[in-house]
Design a protein around this nucleic acid. Structure first.
Lengths: 127, 127
DNA sequence: ACTATAGGTAGGAAATCTCCTACCTATCAA
DNA sequence: TTGATAGGTAGGAGATTTCCTACCTATAGT
């Protein structure tokens, strides 16, 4: 007994989470894979492409890539459009804006570090 | 037979990957968890904190949070410093700069979408 | 020295991820 | 129509993640 379980401290209490973040979660999760980040880079640099052409860049079977594309699609990061018997996948960059916005408030922290200001307000914080 | 396995198409051929990306991989992977993103936000807004204080925000046992902190530590996103019998965890934002840099080249794409320019160069790309 | 507290580590269960090999459908070309 | 090609889906193996409950060490206070 007595593991001091939190019990009442749920993150939902002061986080606006709920269903709104679910989409963002999927975006961050999609970016966790180097393969998927590379796919996005590829679509950015070379424009919309059929699956085969994308698959040619990776040392993996095509169905595996199809899975990655599904993850990207469900995160809203790519869209597909049928052209003849192939599917053109196209970058949909808007959800990345959400990542950027999440990142923004951290910017001053790394900027302070990178410009050499270093710790300074770090020692004022512990109460 | 004949599944047209790629075989010779390895991403290492035209990607500078190798060991340099490994660190970045860990950063992106660390951000994939909503819990870990929330920990970073917390350290950013309230400064360095001991594990218990962080753990109080989540509905999970403390050892589980310790695991998350380890992931963040190995990604270089937090550092710890012993103070008495507690460990102060502090945000280390510099690795986030790397994420920002990865994101940057995508900016013009979502900006075009958000400002209503829409598709425009999408139809020039397929050869 | 003894007890309580902070927090890491061990090991395991359940879920999820990532890859694979079939296999299926839809379209184009003969 | 028949065959070849593009690409999704099914199902499964193996690795990884995420949570848990013990359990252990180190420091602080009495």
């Amino acid at each position: 007994m007595t593991d001091t379980r939190a019990g009442s401290a749920r993150p939902g209490a002061d986080a606006p989470a709920d269903a709104a973040d679910a989409a963002g979660d999927r975006v961050f999760a999609a970016l966790a894979s180097p393969v998927r980040r590379e796919v996005l880079r590829l679509l950015r640099e070379e424009g919309p492409q059929p699956v085969q052409r994308i698959a040619g860049r990776f040392a993996m079977a095509r169905p595996s890539l199809s899975e990655h594309l599904r993850v990207l699609r469900e995160a809203g990061l790519v869209s597909e459009r049928k052209v003849g018997r192939q599917r053109l996948y196209r970058l949909e960059a808007v959800p990345l804006h959400e990542v950027r916005e999440w990142l923004d408030p951290f910017e001053r922290f790394w900027r302070e570090k990178l410009t050499g200001l270093r710790d300074l307000l770090d020692d004022l914080d512990e109460p």
